[in-house]
């Protein structure tokens, strides 16, 4: 075997190795695969961290993941495990509170949208982009909650009666037409 053949074989092996490394990197880690496509170029900066708004709202939120976009703005991602592949109003409120807390504590700009990543029972993960509530809407909701707990405001019932069938407190509930 001549030296030039050895050189070419070694070069081919190296090229194949580099190709394998490139393919592996392209496929990426589980974290990369779980990202919404819009965050492909973002950096994961916070995981399972607690943030506080401070006064006057006094709210605390634990984030699942926070990504930083190339322009520096932060984007929140919340993981949910459920049978139905869709985001709910509860997700939007939770992420809106997280947004206020992260912005208040870090001073960073947090995008007014976020992602709800839904993991279904079959193990499929799909991300949904949601628009978040603003400071005034959350402050109103905070006041309303306090009013309900203080007995000053009449609480609303769940919009769907189907939700009531799964509620552990339904035997104490005075909702009309509840079977």
């Amino acid at each position: 075997m001549t030296p030039s053949v050895v050189f070419w074989v070694a070069g081919l092996v190296l090229a194949l190795l580099l190709g394998a490394v490139w393919l592996f990197r392209r496929k990426g880690s589980a974290e990369r695969r779980s990202r919404p496509p819009e965050l492909a170029r973002a950096d994961l900066v916070y995981m399972e961290e607690t943030f506080r708004t401070g006064g006057p709202l006094w709210m605390v939120a634990k984030v699942d993941r926070v990504y930083r976009l190339p322009d520096g703005a932060l984007v929140l991602v919340e993981l949910k495990t459920r049978r139905r592949d869709r985001p709910y109003l509860t997700d939007i409120i939770q992420l809106s509170v997280q947004r206020l807390a992260v912005a208040a504590q870090t001073g960073a700009s947090v995008e007014p949208y976020a992602f709800v990543s839904v993991l279904d029972t079959a193990g499929r993960l799909r991300s949904h982009r949601v628009h978040l509530l603003d400071l005034n809407e959350i402050a109103d909701l905070r006041r309303r909650r306090k009013g309900i707990l203080d007995g000053q405001l009449r609480p609303a019932y769940a919009t769907s009666e189907a939700a009531c069938r799964q509620c552990a407190l339904r035997h104490k509930c005075d909702r009309p037409r509840l079977s």
Binding site: M59, T90, I93, Q94, R145, A156, Y157, A163
Partner: peptide
């Protein structure tokens, strides 16, 4: 807070 979006009762 999120529970406010489900059922206030």
């Amino acid at each position: 807070m999120a529970e406010m979006g489900f059922c206030e009762k």
